[in-house]
């Protein structure tokens, strides 16, 4: 197995193992579509490389031609050839079926979890100082208005949380309020689920539009209590620089 064809096969398998199993040890796993794209590029590169000259081309295609025509093939190779010829049409048939078969799955939903806020809510600073009294008041308000869904432990597991889709945000998760500025939370609390743009699917959110019931001062203090209780800090412009 020293021919260019075998080398290409080994290269493809190696690439797949690297992308699928080794790379995720260092970074996030790649989506299957991206792995497929990389493998297709690798294969195309090999094809271009081996079709550069007539000699390497014959070397590359020779085994393929011999395999397909069945010239001088006996035993395992002969059986494999028949297997390939039987399986390929069946594979095409199966692919056709899966493409056309009616799906029982509802349409896929790509909901944006943290969409861009309206301009008037960008960069607002919390007008209330971070005093122990203000934080304490914020936690009290949080307990009264927010904890039924977002949980007494700020983990999104309040008694009323079960059953909502999407589920209430888990503030102790580093992917939620720790990634956001206080002004962003101010927008989300004030305008609620119905204030979201279309890409965030506002029709699904149970988050109340709190501006109808709570004064701005309470909302700012709730934000303070939320960060403190969840053990997170708001994202600031300074940290991004």
């Amino acid at each position: 197995m020293k021919g260019p064809l075998a080398k290409t096969a080994i290269l493809l398998v190696g690439m797949y193992v690297f992308l699928k199993f080794i790379l995720p040890l260092f970074t996030a796993p790649l989506p299957a579509s991206l792995i497929f794209l990389y493998l297709a590029l690798t294969f195309a590169s090999a094809m271009i490389f081996y079709t550069m000259s007539g000699g390497s081309l014959d070397e590359f295609m020779g085994p393929v031609g011999r395999f397909l025509t069945g010239s001088g093939q006996v035993g395992i190779a002969g059986t494999a050839r028949i297997l390939v010829f039987v399986l390929f049409p069946l594979l095409v048939g199966w692919q056709t079926y899966t493409r056309l078969a009616p799906s029982d799955m509802p349409p896929a939903e790509n909901r944006t979890i943290h969409p861009a806020p309206p301009g008037e809510f960008v960069g607002l600073a919390n007008p209330y100082p971070r005093t122990p009294e203000n934080i304490m008041m914020g936690k009290g308000l949080y307990a009264a208005f927010c904890s039924p869904c977002h949980g007494a432990n700020f983990d999104g597991k309040g008694p009323a949380a079960v059953g909502f889709n999407p589920p209430p945000a888990n503030f102790s998760d580093p992917g939620t309020i720790a990634q956001l500025q206080e002004s962003y939370l101010f927008w989300r609390i004030k305008k609620g689920g119905v204030g979201l743009p279309v890409e965030a699917m506002p029709w699904k959110s149970a988050m109340p539009r709190w501006e109808v019931e709570l004064p701005d001062e309470w909302i700012w203090k709730i934000i303070m209590g939320e960060y403190d209780g969840a053990g997170q800090s708001p994202r600031t412009w300074e940290e991004e620089e």
């Binding site: 056709t96 078969a101 509802p106």
Partner: peptide, 27 residues
């Protein structure tokens, strides 16, 4: 509850098997 989905099952479509056979023959 939140919004979920509902669908009335469509009548079976047998033409799909014709396309499968066509795919196999073409291959």
């Amino acid at each position: 509850s939140s919004w979920w989905y509902l669908r009335a099952e469509p009548p079976p479509d047998n033409s799909i098997y014709g396309y499968v056979v066509l795919g196999i023959v073409l291959a």
